[in-house]
Nucleic acid binder design. Sequence first.
DNA 1: CTGTTGTGCAACCCCAGAGTTGCTCCTCAT
DNA 2: ATGAGGAGCAACTCTGGGGTTGCACAACAG
Lengths: 131, 131
Amino acid sequence: MGGESSPGAAGEPEPETDLGAVLTALSDPTRRLLLERLAAAGRASATELAEGLPVSRQAVLKHLKVLGDAGLVTSGRAGRAVLFEVRPGPLDACARHLAELASTWDRRLHNLKRRAEAVPTPPPPKESRQP
Amino acid sequence: MGGESSPGAAGEPEPETDLGAVLTALSDPTRRLLLERLAAAGRASATELAEGLPVSRQAVLKHLKVLGDAGLVTSGRAGRAVLFEVRPGPLDACARHLAELASTWDRRLHNLKRRAEAVPTPPPPKESRQP
DNA sequence: CTGTTGTGCAACCCCAGAGTTGCTCCTCAT
DNA sequence: ATGAGGAGCAACTCTGGGGTTGCACAACAG
């Protein structure tokens, strides 16, 4: 996947995908909408994005900063305009991490259940949600 | 409300994994710590979890409610004790969703770059974060 | 050179939610 | 029956961050 058209240095993979930052960035609905629109548009300026969103340009700018800190978007200057672009790397890393976590939990649960079937410990917490 | 006393059975309704709820639940560091400890312990009560955490029992209880609403934990009564258990399903669903999103973004980016190479549009926003 | 457009910074408002404390009720042990 | 310990509910505080407004500054068009 190393196909950077930028001349010069091509060694900017991922400094360190901060799981917490990515999750925090993704937790906000406005931010998710923003990412969606940005992904759809390819690249866009804060002003453009704000025009299609229910919030002001400055709010969008703040959100973009948060997303940028999480590594989910990149900023690029084109004259007086600043274009933002979506960045799939950290998202993918986050997805893998979560999947691994889920897998770990699943394995642990299976171990517990096999043990529960062996010893006389009748009722483990059954799956019951919503009364 | 089925009378499922055997958790090993294959009768998982899995209502609808709310992506937003899961991400919101995961966005809090305390909540993530909580999940980690809960996964490590297999199952535990709110009191037990609070003893190992830097917050009060009530705060833990609130967090567990949020996690429960997101479907990430289940509660089960054992006498006067209420045991909580981790639930990998929604996490896995969330991970898959994010991975798919990342894939979509990646595909779109590649399309844009191929187009950029064809037409005289020299500088697309280069990857530049943190000077 | 001057006007226009759009970005960037700073101060400010305001509400959601993270955390606490205090009390009550229920369950188990003696 | 009575006491002890844990769970649940409710009211309260307070910080964080999502959102806004206003203005100053830089870049293109005429």
